[in-house]
Design a protein around this nucleic acid. Structure first.
Lengths: 247, 247
DNA sequence: CGACACGTTGAGATATATCAAACGTGGTGG
DNA sequence: CCACCACGTTTGATATATCTCAACGTGTCG
């Protein structure tokens, strides 16, 4: 039922799952049926798939997409991005059928946890059920924030907002050192996230750079002035429900 | 603990909660501590509030908003709209603190269910926990659809899409007769939903009318050609996870 | 070296926002 | 009963953010 211990034991417990109670975390680790390595730009699951496991992202970046309807030319939209320490599709546990595609952006390492095992876990303790439920609700809060961004913010502020969010989330996942953060995304990814054209993404990034706010290049974001970047975006990380600093 | 039976017994079980198992529904009804009537345009709860109950919408329309950050002029965005038979803030159960405002659009009637009671319910049965969890996940799926709409769809298609969604959801709540559906929203509400200006909303619904697709007026949407309306929006209601027709 | 993927820049097109005014329409009070 | 007002809607004119198209760089890799 559980995989090779040498794999399992060195999971760093960080990011989102660090919020889970220790005992629950142990249960999840021992319930893991497989650790899988994904190449960059590969599909994990597609709209309509019925899942019988959920995946925890150990390493790399993954994303969820809504495809344009049959209709025509409309491009897809990225509706979520996952960083290490987050469940990618925990919502598949109560939902089963997926309403979106899941792909890796970079090479990624994921731990698969069978739904049967998760069901046993939540049957054991309703506190554990609430803790897992809560993780999916944070995802929903992020959806709402993205909704605000795409419907109300200008290109420049949108991009600043997204960079602030990634800075915050990756820092929490232990992937940011100081004001530099690994952001291994193409400009076309940023376009799918913000709803802008790739051309405009390029110009917006230049404006951020020339404004001395941050430099996005070669898969990294170098933040020169976090204060002003946040102010430009009107950024408040409350919606991420991160534990207080120095937890 | 439970309220006057004459109030409770005549709750029609319809819309979203119709998907819940009968026994769970009975538990929820008897756990209800209060039925409250809200005037139109009143605030139920605000960003940061810590909830100790969740509200089920019995009648009327309610909405959730994200406010623009301190920053300045940015208007708020509507991130969700609730129709009868849906929980308004079930996510408050695992989350406690809200990340958004909740207001009534019309006069509304809501049933308050204390979190303490809901916690007892989910402790009793993990299937019930999953059923409630699932309702909040449908909300998240709708968030994702709205995200697609605001980031990828044109004004005309956006409006068509929203009308299709409301038609589907209100029909399921038993509030649509034929191709006419009560949509008691101002054009400024439609603007907050779609991210358009109120002026453009006015022009867009004129175009829909002149195109023979639907007439939005006086708080109703008269759908003249559902086929073409759906085609214009590229609409597929799969994300609502409604039970198959003739359930 | 050539091919390809990604990024940048410029020019022009367009969807939508903004501003301002006018138009119902239903209530209210004189 | 009429005058008036508040509110929501409609229309026109203009501004602008962003898109689209097309060309050109630039690095990487076989």
């Amino acid at each position: 039922m559980s995989v090779d211990m040498s794999d399992v034991l060195d999971w760093r417990r960080r990011g989102m799952v660090a919020q889970l109670p220790a005992a629950l975390w142990d249960e999840i680790r021992s319930a893991c049926s497989e650790v899988r390595h994904l190449p960059p730009r590969s599909t994990l699951s597609e709209t309509g798939d019925r899942m019988n496991y959920s995946a925890l992202l150990l390493d790399g970046i993954m994303a969820r997409y809504l495809r344009g309807s049959s209709n025509g030319t409309a491009r897809r939209a990225m509706v979520s991005i996952q960083v290490p320490g987050e469940f990618i599709d925990l919502h598949g546990l109560p939902m089963k059928a997926l309403d979106h595609d899941v792909e890796s952006l970079t090479a990624a390492e994921i731990a698969l946890v069978p739904h049967a095992a998760l069901e046993r876990i939540i049957a054991r303790s309703s506190d554990w059920a609430l803790a897992l439920w809560r993780l999916t609700m944070i995802d929903a809060a992020i959806h709402r924030h993205w909704l605000y961004r795409t419907s109300r913010m200008r290109a420049l502020a949108s991009m600043a907002d997204f960079i602030c969010e990634m800075h915050e989330r990756l820092r929490h996942a232990g992937e940011a050192d100081g004001h530099s953060v690994a952001l291994p995304l193409l400009q076309s990814d940023l376009a799918e996230i913000t709803g802008l054209s790739t051309v405009h993404v390029s110009r917006v990034i230049r404006d951020l750079r020339e404004g001395g706010l941050c430099t996005v290049r070669d898969g990294r974001a170098e933040i020169h002035d976090l204060e002003r970047l946040r102010h430009l975006a009107g950024y408040d990380p409350g919606y991420l429900y991160l534990p207080a600093e120095g937890d």
